[in-house]
């Protein structure tokens, strides 16, 4: 009987829990860019998705640190794993239960849209965003447009007010 040996890679490249300071995000991002000499396009996409989703945690996590009583820095978790043919990037942060429902609906809408519809959504959303502190509000759309894979999300209720919202994006190497 032939024995097939299947090599399945599942390597954790990065794991972090704490405040998402821009200085940290930048250093992690730089490391992602320099992971290896191969999968150049995948790493470019991974970097962009990494920045977007990490900054979502930094900007919107309901668990946050105040810097000098002025600047709010979101606290959360991130995990980057490498598999044979893809990377998996996950962020997790605290959200209000009411926002978790909105976010889940938003993920469903994005997952149900093809690339043409996503591009249209992105344009509409950016044009209609009030800007200023709200940004463009297109980070999740951008992540799916870049990866061409669906968003995987999970909601774990902490109590009557808050939940943990985790988001995973798969980035194919080829």
């Amino acid at each position: 009987m032939l024995e097939t040996i299947v090599s399945i890679m599942n390597k954790t490249l990065l794991s972090y829990r704490g405040p998402f300071y821009i200085e940290l995000i930048s250093v992690f991002g730089s490391n992602i860019r320099n992971l290896s000499d191969v999968y150049i396009n995948a790493r470019k996409k991974l970097f962009k998705i990494f920045i977007e989703l990490s900054q979502n945690v930094s900007n919107y996590s309901e668990n946050f640190h105040m810097v000098n009583n002025v600047q709010r820095i979101g606290v959360g978790e991130l995990y980057l794993k490498e598999h044979d043919t893809f990377y998996l990037f996950t962020t997790k942060n605290q959200v209000k239960n009411s926002d978790a429902k909105i976010l889940a609906e938003r993920c469903e809408l994005i997952n149900a849209s093809n690339q043409i519809k996503l591009r249209q959504l992105k344009r509409e959303q950016r044009l209609n965003s009030p800007g200023e502190k709200f940004g463009a509000r297109i980070g999740l759309i951008q992540a799916v447009m870049l990866s061409k894979n669906e968003l995987e999300y999970n909601v774990e209720e902490i109590n009557d007010s808050f939940s943990h919202f985790s988001l995973t994006v798969k980035i194919d190497k080829y």
Partner: peptide, 13 residues
């Protein structure tokens, strides 16, 4: 070389 989505809103402005 790279701009995040918040920056794209400002460039659009």
């Amino acid at each position: 070389i790279y701009l995040n989505t918040s920056s794209t809103k400002c460039i659009l402005d």
